[in-house]
């Protein structure tokens, strides 16, 4: 898996190398970059497999590497031996690449969520948002009216089964928690019920004689107007005394 990781990195590295090559470079000279990278990766794969105690077939793949490493001509910069060894290693890398990439992919698919989870666990996102994000500015840019306009509240309400909700409410429990007696007592203390009953009964009882009273009031006003007109007076001062005077 480590080799796979390296192989992925090596591919990216080779791509980078290739892209950094001059445009006018010959086709044959652009390949060595990939080949060298591939060779490096092949060596890494082989070394990893050897370190892991791979079987004899792996050992066979190591042999060219070893010979390549200890080959004096390579050390002296001779091109032929090195090129040949590189080709061999590159071929091995090409063969192992698919498997290595798959392993790396599966490894990453497991590792990345773990890492992300661990990182997220370490970050206080709320504090981060509070410190870094200007929520007010964001909200100011949101056209809430248009959002609200797009919401069909009626349809939402239609979907709500109020009866079902009400059925689930334990009203008896709510009532049990209310001190109805105290509430009723408080209300009675505040409304002066005896006074209301006394006054209303007085007012109601007078309904039968309302006509009499209104007739008397009208007569009072009529006589007063006539007398005042005869005596050429202005209006009368009829304010009676009040209890607090």
């Amino acid at each position: 898996m480590g080799a796979g990781l390296f192989s992925a990195g090596a591919s990216a590295f080779a791509d980078a190398l290739r892209s950094s090559m001059p445009e006018d470079a010959p086709e044959t000279q652009s390949d060595p970059a990939a080949k060298i990278a591939g060779a490096g990766m092949g060596a890494a794969v082989t070394a990893a497999e050897a370190a892991a105690g791979a079987a004899g077939s792996a050992a066979e793949r190591v042999a060219p590497l070893m010979s390549w490493l200890v080959n004096p001509p390579f050390l002296k910069g001779a091109g032929k031996g090195a090129a040949g060894a590189a080709r061999v290693l590159d071929g091995q890398w090409q063969a192992a690449q698919a498997e290595a990439v798959q392993a790396a992919t599966s490894f990453l698919s497991v590792l990345v969520p773990e890492i992300v989870g661990a990182v997220m666990g370490q970050i206080d996102l709320n504090r981060l948002v509070q410190e870094r994000v200007d929520v007010d500015a964001i909200v100011a840019r949101v056209d809430l009216d248009s959002v609200v306009d797009r919401i069909d509240v009626g349809a939402i309400v239609d979907k709500v089964d109020v009866n079902a909700i009400v059925e689930r409410v334990d009203f008896e429990a709510v009532i049990d928690r209310l001190d109805i007696t105290a509430i009723a007592q408080d209300v009675l203390d505040n409304i002066d019920l005896p006074g209301i009953i006394r006054d209303s009964s007085g007012a109601m009882a007078s309904e039968g004689v309302q006509d009499f009273r209104l007739l008397g009031m009208g007569g009072d006003r009529l006589v007063a107007n006539v007398v005042d007109r005869v005596l050429r007076r202005s209006q009368r001062d009829l304010d009676g005394p009040s209890p607090e005077d």
């Binding site: 006054d199 009031m217 006003r221 006589v223 007063a224």
Partner: peptide
Amino acid sequence: LLPPAAQERQGLRAGVVS
């Protein structure tokens, strides 16, 4: 509690007819 006509005159001195 009183009808409007009575509210207007409530507390005023009554006339000779009444």
